[in-house]
Nucleic acid binder design. Structure first.
Lengths: 218, 218
DNA sequence: ACATATTTTTAGATTAATCTAAATTTTTGA
DNA sequence: TCAAAAATTTAGATTAATCTAAAAATATGT
């Protein structure tokens, strides 16, 4: 049985692997987990000992098959609990991360499955991220950033890249939500801001915003 | 913020106080928590330091106002999560204790309240134990044991004293459940077993059983 | 009452996870 | 290439929670 800390290291390594390709080093992990690099060294030696990661001194780490399985299972639990909190307990999508960080570590052989069924087998969490199935398979959404859409083309908002509270609250305040169809009306070369239109409004958004919204082209 | 361990000590002290009256000593706590008495001494010094318990060397402990508040809040969370697991995720009443032991430690200012509302403000957990309200008030059920009913009198099964899996499964197998009306048909002086009747059957049960079932006289 | 048994506390060690500071290895760029 | 910078690891300490063994205090029973 892994400790919460060990699970968090695996999850961090997994998520760095997703965004940073292959270079998972001590510093990145320490940054992600807000610990010191020396603490990371200690823990990765321990995880390597348990065959959950591959580790060569000074060369960084990567997940083994079983380490990856565990990491994905935690992601699965995290996202399902987020769906529970938003769909059943009526939390807003910017409020659920901290609670899910705790709930994802509840140990039970059957709980995740029961929860998933209770929630009607959702495919995505409240931020649009895909929920892995019980075998660890993840529907790869190959969507594009809103910032990459051409003028006059449209997309449906599918997810967010940044899921910080402040970004999510910004979207709420801007009346932009998952499922919205957005059309790009104009692009400003100077600062890469774009003029967009959805059902409710036409407005300009900065690149910082458009580069953090996943859309499915239509 | 208290650690899970500290919370568990407070909960243990609270529950010993409920059953054992006033004598809450090191040995009882160590027995409840399956630790050694010396570990208990360490922890109660720490909790006394934080003004959560009163402690005088060699004299045992009792909860302060704030310690009691925290203990009851944990009980509240434990029982609400049990209701969730049984009512929403369709677990049987003998399967939920371990999960609730973990879920009760989830930290959030709003989660318990949301959960309670989602569950329609249940007053009792799946074993018939009362759920404290958000101020820590507990509806005191002043029920009696089935073993104390007179011949020819009846009672509604309200709760169980022993909520071990084995006892709960025994009740399932015996077709006895919360809400059943049970009539005492006869008593056997020799071993204190009693003959009971409910909607489905007439059967004899041992004193070990009848002394662990709370009933409300009717 | 007082010797014995029981309970409780103290002293010192251990384990997991962390830290700081120093040493080592790798990377970088003139 | 090779010296300086950056990253990583090692060494040694710390904190929380636990343990064992021994010492101290309390309770018990003739």
């Amino acid at each position: 049985m892994l400790s919460q800390t060990e699970e968090n290291y695996l999850k961090a390594i997994y998520s760095i692997g997703i965004s940073n390709g292959k270079n998972i080093n001590t510093t990145l992990i320490s940054r992600k987990l807000k610990t010191k690099p020396s603490s990371v060294t200690d823990m990765i030696r321990k995880l390597a000992e348990k065959d959950l990661i591959y580790y060569e001194k000074y060369k960084g780490v990567s997940l083994t098959q079983s380490g990856k399985k565990i990491a994905i299972d935690i992601v699965r639990k995290h996202r399902l609990w987020e769906v529970f909190l938003v769909n059943k307990l009526n939390y807003n999508w910017d409020e659920v991360h901290e609670m899910a960080e705790q709930l994802e570590h509840i140990k039970s052989d059957t709980l995740v499955g029961r929860l998933e069924a209770f929630l009607d087998f959702p495919k995505h969490d409240p931020h649009g991220d895909p929920i892995p199935d019980e075998n660890g398979n993840i529907a790869q959404h190959k969507n594009v950033m809103l910032s990459s859409l051409e003028i006059n083309s449209s997309g449906v908002v599918i997810g967010v890249k940044d899921s910080s509270s402040s970004f999510l609250q910004f979207l709420d305040n801007s009346n932009i939500k998952l499922g919205d169809t957005i059309k790009v009306i104009a692009k400003e070369d100077y600062d890469n801001s774009i003029l967009i239109e959805n059902k409710l409004q036409t407005k300009s958004i900065s690149q910082q915003i458009s580069a953090n919204l996943f859309v499915k082209k239509i």
